[in-house]
Amino acid sequence: MTNAPILKLDHLGVTFPNNPVFSDLNLTIRQGEVWSIIGKNGVGKTTLMRTLLHQLRPTQGKVTYLPSVNDVRIGYVPQFRNIDADYPLTIRDFIGLNLTGWKLPWLSAKERVKVQRIIEQTGLTELANRPIGQASGGEKQKAYLAQALVEAPNLLILDESTASLDPVTKTELLDLVTELNQRLNLTVLFVTHDIPMAQKYTHQYLMMTPGKVEQGPISQLTDDKVWEGENV
């Protein structure tokens, strides 16, 4: 079964002043696919994701959202975030932040149910009323994921969100994402350096190297290619 494409990149390129990051990137992402985006530090993975999020304007080519730009609702778990130990909000309140709009200040009963459901799904029930500033790195990552999921996105982008997780938590989180992928046909892009994880949990890969981009089914991601991608 091939699903409808939701994202098409045509000859996409981003150049910062005097710093070409990537160019001529062609890619079609279909509803329900799970991609890993790999490549060594500084190659432009986060830059590519920020382009998809309309945070950066591409300097060449274009991104097309299908059927229309409003149909692609992106949930993004960014690579960096500053939540210091003093940060006052509970995990529950932090998740609810993402429910914005021209609405009353307080959450409606329906919205509170939405938040509660995500809390249960992400395994945060016990921690929900603790200040997120006091949560561990892995617990914070779960809360970030929950926040991204609360608005029911159909495209989820995780930028190295599993890097600081212990093996058990990592598996829990990836199983959850896999389940959402299967149940709701959620499309997922994993930015990661964790090749075994990519091989286990994703279907396609996009490998970025300076000057060239390669893609294919994850089964074709051989060790040689990984070595080249992470080192050259």
Binding site: Y76, P78, L97, N98, T100, K103, P105, Q147
Partner: peptide, 23 residues
């Protein structure tokens, strides 16, 4: 403040998240 409350709250308490959301 009342009208902008949810936007202001998101941006003030999670600037990164608000930017990602495209606020």
């Amino acid at each position: 403040v009342f009208v902008l409350y949810r936007f202001l709250k998101f941006d003030s308490f999670d600037h990164t998240g608000a930017r990602v959301k495209g606020l």
